[in-house]
Design a binder for these strands. Structure first.
Lengths: 185, 185
DNA sequence: GGTTATTATAGGAATAATCCTATATAAGAA
DNA sequence: TTCTTATATAGGATTATTCCTATAATAACC
C-alpha cells in the first residue's frame, strides 16, 4: 500500500502524531495522494504491528494524550526498498472520460456546456497552484534541505504542467466545436 | 458508480452479454476505465435488480448459455440523467509522485534511473496509441455514426495529449538534472 | 495426445478507500 | 451563551476494485 510509504516518508523526517500527519497530507501531498484521517490512524496501527514504527505516548492535560510515532530501523529499510522499486504502470480512472465517450447522444449545447464547466474547474485548479506558489516561503520551512525542497516543488510543477496541457487541449476543442467540427449525426 | 453508466452506454447501442462487454471495455474504454470481468457480471446482476436492464437467456449447445442484457426505459433515463450531471472533481492518486516527493534520500543516479524508466514507459504508451491509430478502421466499424466516432477518437486524443505533455516535462527534467540543477544536499 | 485458447458464467476473499460516528476539553467568536 | 474551531484519538459500516477459483465444451495448435 502506497499510503504506508508516504507516512514512512514523513516519519523519516521526524516523529509525528496521526493528527500531525493528517495536516501534512492536506498541505503537501494531497494533490496526488489524498488521505482520510481514519485511514491514517488505521495505517499507523498496522505499521506498528509490523514493527515499522514505534509509539511514544505523551500525556497532555488540556488535550487528549498524544501518540507520537517514530520510524524504526525496519521501517527505514522498508522505505528505502520501496523508493528504489519500480512501480507497476498506473491505471487511470476518469469518470469524466466516460461521459465524453458517450456524449454523442447529447445536444451540441449540452456538450459545450460540459467542456466549458471542466475548463472552468481547471482554471480554478491552476489558480490554487498559483496561490501555493505565492506562499511558497511558508512551505519551505517544513523541508530540511534544498534537495528535499526541489522534489516538493517538482510534484507541484507536475500538477501545473498536467493541468495546463489539459486546459489548452480543452480550449482548443471548444474552438473546434464552435467551428463546426463536431458531426451532427 | 461510474461503471454502471459505462455499461449502460454500451447497452444503449445494442444488447450485449457480459462476455461481449468485457471485450468492449478492453478495446475501447480501458485506457480511462479498466474493468474486471467479475466486476462486470456483478454490476449487470445489480442493474437487473434495479430494473435498468433486462435479461434474455439464449440457449447454446456447444457453448454455455448466453445471457443477453438489453437496456430498459428506466435504464435509458438513468443514463441520460447521469450524462448531463456534472461530476464531482476527480482526485488523482499517483504512487509515482510519492516516490518523487521522497526521492531526496536517493542518489542522483538512482533518481535519473527512475525518471528514465518512467520516460521509457511513456514512450511505449505513445507507441501503443500510435498502433491503435494505425488500425483505426477496425475500430470505426464498432461505432454507429460519425458523431459517436468523434467522441471515441476524442478520448484517445486526450490520452495522447496527456502522455505527450508528461513525456516532454520529464525529458526536460532529465536534462535539467544532468545540467546540475538538482541540489546535492 | 496434451496443452492452450475461446466462449460463457459467477461466487468468495482480500484489499483499499470513504463516510459516519463517538469521545473529550478548551479557546475564541458570534 | 451557544456555536464553531482546534486538539487528539479510533471503531464500524459501506463502497469499490481486484484477485483467485470453479465449471464446461470445443477447437486449434504443437
Amino acid at each position: 500500500m502506497s499510503l504506508d510509504y508516504a507516512i514512512l516518508g514523513f516519519l523519516n523526517y521526524r516523529p509525528y502524531s496521526g493528527y500531525d500527519l493528517k495536516k501534512f497530507f492536506d498541505t503537501s501531498v494531497r494533490h496526488f495522494w489524498p488521505a482520510d484521517q481514519s485511514q491514517i490512524y488505521k495505517t499507523l496501527a498496522r505499521m506498528s504491528e509490523k514493527g515499522w514504527v514505534k509509539i511514544k505516548v505523551i500525556p497532555q492535560e488540556a488535550r487528549p494524550d498524544r501518540k507520537e510515532y517514530s520510524i524504526t530501523k525496519t521501517g527505514r529499510d522498508e522505505l528505502r526498498k520501496w523508493l528504489t522499486t519500480p512501480l507497476p504502470p498506473e491505471e487511470n480512472r476518469s469518470a469524466d472520460m466516460i461521459q465524453v465517450f458517450f456524449a454523442a447522444q447529447l445536444s451540441d449545447e449540452e456538450i459545450l456546456g460540459m467542456f466549458e464547466r471542466v475548463a472552468m474547474l481547471m482554471r480554478a485548479g491552476l489558480e490554487q497552484y498559483a496561490q501555493i506558489s505565492r506562499n511558497i516561503e511558508d512551505y519551505s520551512e517544513y523541508t530540511n534541505s534544498p534537495r528535499e525542497f526541489f522534489f516538493w516543488m517538482l510534484t507541484l510543477d507536475v500538477g501545473v504542467n498536467n493541468l495546463r496541457s489539459s486546459l489548452a487541449f480543452i480550449e482548443n476543442l471548444i474552438k473546434r466545436i464552435r467551428n463546426g467540427e463536431l458531426p451532427k449525426t
